[in-house]
C-alpha cells in the first residue's frame, strides 16, 4: 500500500480538527488534551498536542493520509516532523480571530522556508463571527499571489472539498510529480 500525505495546519482553534473530521472517511484519530494555558482555555477546552489523523482511500494500492498539526508555536517541532514527505499543505485561518493572523503568517513562513510543496490558505468562516475578506487576509498576512486563499466553512463537506481540490489542482501544476 502506497501512502501519501497532506498537512492541515493553522493557529490555535482555527478549525483544523473539524476540517479533517469533515473530509476523513474514518473516525479521526485525535491526540487532544485538556488545555492548561489559561488564555487558551477561554477559547476551547481541548487542544491537539501531537497530531490529528484522517484518511481517504483511493484504491486497493494507494491512500491519502491527512495529518493535522498542533496550532501553538511551542509545538513547532511537530510541524517539522509531520511535514516531511508531505505533498501539500493547507493552512487554516479563523476569519473572526484577527489576533491569530500573525501566528498564521509565522506558520506560512515556516512552511515556505521548510518545504517546497504547494500551500493553500483556507479562510474559515465560523458562524456568528465577524468575517474578513480574502483580500483583507492576503494583505494582513502578506500572502504572496502564488499562494491561493480559499474561503471555507470547516463543518461543511462541500466547502472542505473545495479547499482540498484547490490544493490538488495546485499540486498538479506546481507539485513534484512523476509519471
Amino acid at each position: 500500500m502506497k501512502r501519501y500525505k497532506i498537512i492541515i495546519s493553522g493557529p490555535f482553534a482555527a478549525g483544523k480538527t473539524t476540517f479533517i473530521k469533515t473530509i476523513s472517511e474514518i473516525a479521526m484519530v485525535e491526540t487532544d488534551r485538556k488545555v492548561t494555558d489559561s488564555e487558551e482555555s477561554a477559547v476551547k477546552d481541548f487542544t491537539t498536542v501531537a497530531m490529528d489523523f484522517g484518511r481517504i482511500t483511493i484504491d486497493g494500492e494507494t491512500v491519502l493520509h491527512i495529518f493535522g498539526t498542533p496550532g501553538q508555536f511551542r509545538f513547532n517541532y511537530m510541524w517539522s516532523i509531520l511535514v516531511k514527505d508531505a505533498i501539500g499543505i493547507i493552512i487554516i485561518v479563523d476569519s473572526g480571530e484577527v489576533e491569530t493572523f500573525e501566528d498564521a503568517s509565522d506558520m506560512l513562513n515556516f512552511f515556505r522556508v521548510k518545504t517546497d510543496c504547494p500551500i493553500v490558505v483556507a479562510l474559515n468562516h465560523f458562524k456568528d463571527k465577524e468575517k474578513i475578506s480574502v483580500e483583507e487576509l492576503r494583505e494582513d498576512m502578506n500572502i504572496p499571489p502564488e499562494i491561493p486563499v480559499v474561503e471555507c466553512e470547516a463543518t461543511d463537506k462541500e466547502s472542505v472539498k473545495n479547499v482540498l481540490l484547490t490544493l490538488l489542482q495546485l499540486i498538479l501544476t506546481q507539485g513534484d510529480l512523476y509519471d
Binding site: L64, T115, D116, G175, L177
Partner: peptide, 16 residues
C-alpha cells in the same frame, strides 16, 4: 528545505 518525494500524477488525478 525539506524536498518532497513527490507523487505519481495518476494518484493526484485519481484523488481529485
Amino acid at each position: 528545505i525539506v524536498k518532497t518525494k513527490g507523487a505519481p500524477r495518476t494518484f493526484i488525478t485519481k484523488l481529485i
